[in-house]
């Protein structure tokens, strides 16, 4: 849990931390059996590869699938089954299909235990911004705003800093919000951080980094758990 001395110095810029697969695996291990979960397009969908085989977690896809399985192969090809990212996916035994209105009633009605999304920015008050970096280009929103307010929990999986080293965990988001005050937990390449009434609270961090170095890469105060 606490950082041990490693070859990396706290200020070194070569700290990569966990890989995306590591992040997805850590998150997957925290999903209890029996949860109904929506995974956003992209890295969040990788989480499904790491849910332990003996643990029943039911994946929802916003276009009307409950009980989504892995991506199709040439052997299992059925062009009539797609996920929200318009990839051809399989259905698990026990899966069901609904239309768009029923699927979003499921989402907006608070029935999903968890939604995992990627994000550009997250703030210490639980605000997050993941749908567009700017309103100057033509934005596309999809189901992100519905999932953000509908699921019981929003966990984000994202890089801790931008490519040029700027924090993505902030006091206040600078980009257009997806929803205010909804994020409960953030999995980054450097740390797992809860968002509570106090703001960011450290759950765990990569041994490559010290608490001080983590704080230096974060745009708002990180509290240690009591």
């Amino acid at each position: 849990m606490t950082a041990t001395a490693t070859a990396s110095t706290p200020t070194a810029d070569n700290i990569k931390g966990w890989s995306r697969r590591d992040m997805a695996k850590r998150l997957a291990e925290d999903i209890p059996e029996g949860w109904y979960v929506n995974l956003g397009i992209g890295i969040p969908l990788m989480v499904s590869d790491f849910v332990p085989a003996d643990r029943e977690v039911v994946l929802q896809s916003e276009n009307g699938i409950l009980g989504m399985g892995p991506l199709q192969t040439k052997r299992t090809f059925d062009p009539w089954i797609v996920n929200a990212g318009k990839q051809n996916v399989t259905l698990k035994t026990g899966a069901s299909i609904v239309g768009h209105a029923d699927s979003f009633a499921m989402i907006r009605g608070g029935h999903l235990d968890l939604c995992v999304l990627g994000s550009f920015e997250v703030a210490a008050n639980g605000d997050f911004a993941n749908w567009t970096t700017s309103l100057k280009s033509v934005p596309a929103v999809g189901g992100a705003m519905d999932l953000a307010v509908g699921a019981k929990r929003i966990w984000l999986i994202m890089d801790h800093t931008s490519k040029d080293g700027k924090p993505k965990l902030l006091e206040t988001c600078t980009m257009p919000l997806t929803a205010p005050g909804v994020v409960k937990r953030v999995y980054t390449n450097l740390a797992v951080i809860d968002i509570t009434a106090r703001g960011f609270e450290l759950v765990s961090m990569t041994p490559e980094i010290t608490f001080e170095a983590l704080q230096a890469r974060t745009g708002a105060r990180i509290h240690r758990k009591d």
Binding site: E62, H100, F104, A105, I107, R108, V141, G143, M145
Partner: peptide, 15 residues
């Protein structure tokens, strides 16, 4: 002209 609508709001407005 574009009216951008969240996907669930679009489905529910139609329903």
């Amino acid at each position: 002209e574009l009216e951008l609508v969240a996907q669930g709001t679009l489905a529910e407005r139609i329903r």
